[in-house]
Design a protein around this nucleic acid. Structure first.
Length: 467
RNA sequence: GCUCCCUUCGUCUAGUGGCCUAGGACAUCGCCCUCUCACGGCGAGAACAGGGGUUCGAACCCCCUAGGGAGCGCCA
């Protein structure tokens, strides 16, 4: 039997970190076992589902390069199917019509809570065999077994047993004709031949109910794997107002999609002491059965470190398309400065994100935004500052070939000419180039500025130094 | 309240009865490298939730307690 996994988000918001990891694990499991990955949009909640959210999820998947082999399927396009299956169950005596109003059900629940017993539907219509009749409150409820227990072997949690006495007769078809979640997933997973259901562990509680529905439908239940959740850095559950940001926000913040995926795959799963995984390695090494049992916290520091690892080690050219987004955001005129790939090489050891990298590149694409007073005071007012700057201006101006090596030699020559060490020339020059005392290696910094811009800045610095 | 799940350094984790005086990574601190900042190198501090068992021996097995989480919808 071919392995088929699915990622089935409900379009009530963007794709967040937890969803992204679930999608990744589903994708990985399918790839690892040579199977297929299906995308399904669970949009039966008419109140909260939106078109924009569907697009946001698709965009997120696209950015992460988690391609699906089938779908996306939309549950709202399968309404007929759910109704048909639900009615079949009624005919088979495995489900029944019930007509309570929402208020009655609410009252029942309140009474049970007050009596401190577990709130459950009391099965009032279970044995009545009421025919289908027009009634705004008509729903179809599933006849859950009343004794015995459901046992399943979860691929990450292990054996889980659930007494049927804990379960009640859940609604499978609402009064508006829409299916409920527990019913729609089962019908879909059967129809779509899903072999492995991988989802968040907030669904563990639903699994016994779903298995009973599989049984009623004479279908074999798939394998289940329930993933522990991802908590915010403070250990609290992620929610809209609590750090659950869209994966696209990570792009905007300067992270590489692969770095995010690498971070996510290690959150709850590991392979010995290995931290860095290429896509190929993830696919060949990942096994959902190796996923941890407990929740993990999201740590931005480690994600940042990983991101820099990729920044430092990837081919600069492959990074350029990702950097482009941030270069555009900064509004640079790229024709007025160095090639992005050169900028990456110069800055990647001092930046953890692409955003940071793009921002630090400003000095090579436009004028110096502001002069740091402390930098000026410390490096442009020393006795050696003016002679150093004059010497370096002369040697830089004399260059007929503008390459890093030549620039480097010119700076060394200037230092030798005034009888001082590199530091005495490099620091004033650095302030001249950037207005600050921090930048990449001085030869790189000068080289990337370009000859005319570099000379103009040395002249400006000399003026500021009072020469 | 009831049911189910979880518990190793601050964080992510290795560990499946002896290899553990518990390993790695991020973060932190120190030293080295050095034209600044970084990168890199070296080093330090830092954990088996608690209590009972089982066993010659327990981070690993069992029980209890505590703490955390999820669910108990005509939401997904």
């Amino acid at each position: 039997m071919t392995v088929r996994t699915r990622f089935a988000p409900s379009p009530t918001g963007y794709l967040h970190i937890g969803g992204a990891r679930t999608a990744l694990y589903c994708w990985l499991e399918a790839r690892h076992r040579g199977g297929e990955f299906i995308l399904r949009i669970e949009d039966t909640d008419r109140e909260r589902s939106t078109e924009a959210a569907v697009q946001a999820i698709l965009d997120g998947m696209q950015w992460l390069q988690l391609g699906h082999d089938e779908g996306p399927y939309y549950q709202t396009l399968r309404m007929e199917r759910y109704r048909e299956v639900a009615e079949d169950l009624v005919r088979a005596g495995k489900a029944y019509y019930a007509y309570e109003t929402k208020e009655e059900l609410e009252a029942l629940r309140a009474a049970q809570m007050a009596a401190t017993i577990k709130p459950r539907y009391n099965g009032a219509y279970r044995e009545r065999n009421e025919p289908m009749r027009d009634d705004p409150n008509r729903v179809i409820r599933f006849k859950n077994p009343q004794s015995g227990s459901v046992v399943f072997q979860d691929k990450v949690k292990g054996r889980i047993e659930w007494s049927n006495e804990e379960l009640d007769d859940l609604v499978i078809l609402r009064s508006d004709g829409f299916p409920t979640y527990n019913f729609a997933v089962v019908v879909d997973d059967i129809d779509m031949k899903i072999s492995d259901v991988i989802r968040g562990d907030d669904h563990v509680n639903n699994t016994p109910r779903q298995i009973n529905i599989y049984n009623a439908l004479n279908a074999t239940a798939p394998n289940f794997a329930h993933l522990p959740m991802i908590l915010g850095a403070d250990g609290q559950k992620l929610s809209k107002r609590h750090g659950a940001v869209s994966v696209m926000q990570y792009r905007d913040d300067g992270f590489l999609p692969h770095a995010l995926l690498n971070y996510l795959v290690r959150l709850g799963w590991s392979h010995g002491d290995q931290e860095i995984f290429s896509r190929e390695q993830m696919v060949s090494l990942f096994d959902v059965a190796d996923v941890n049992h407990s929740a993990a916290r999201f740590d931005l520091e480690k994600l940042s470190w990983l991101n820099q690892q990729y920044l430092k080690n990837d081919d600069p050219e492959t990074l350029v398309p990702h950097l482009q987004f941030h270069l555009d955001a900064c509004g640079y005129d790229l024709s007025s400065g160095p090639a992005p790939a050169d900028v990456i090489v110069a800055l990647r050891e001092r930046c953890r994100t692409l955003k940071e990298l793009a921002e630090k590149a400003a000095v090579w694409y436009g004028p110096i935004a502001s002069w740091d007073d402390a930098a000026v005071a410390k490096h442009l007012t020393t006795p050696t500052a003016v002679p150093a700057l004059q010497a370096v201006h002369a040697s830089l101006a004399a260059l007929t070939e503008w390459k890093v090596e030549q620039v480097h030699s010119a700076i060394e020559a200037a230092a030798a000419a005034i009888g001082e060490g590199m530091g005495k020339v490099a620091q004033p020059l650095r302030v001249a180039m950037t207005g600050t005392q921090v930048s990449p290696a001085i030869d790189q910094t000068v080289y990337l500025a370009g000859q005319s811009r570099a000379l103009a800045r040395v002249e400006e610095a000399l003026r500021r130094a009072g020469a």
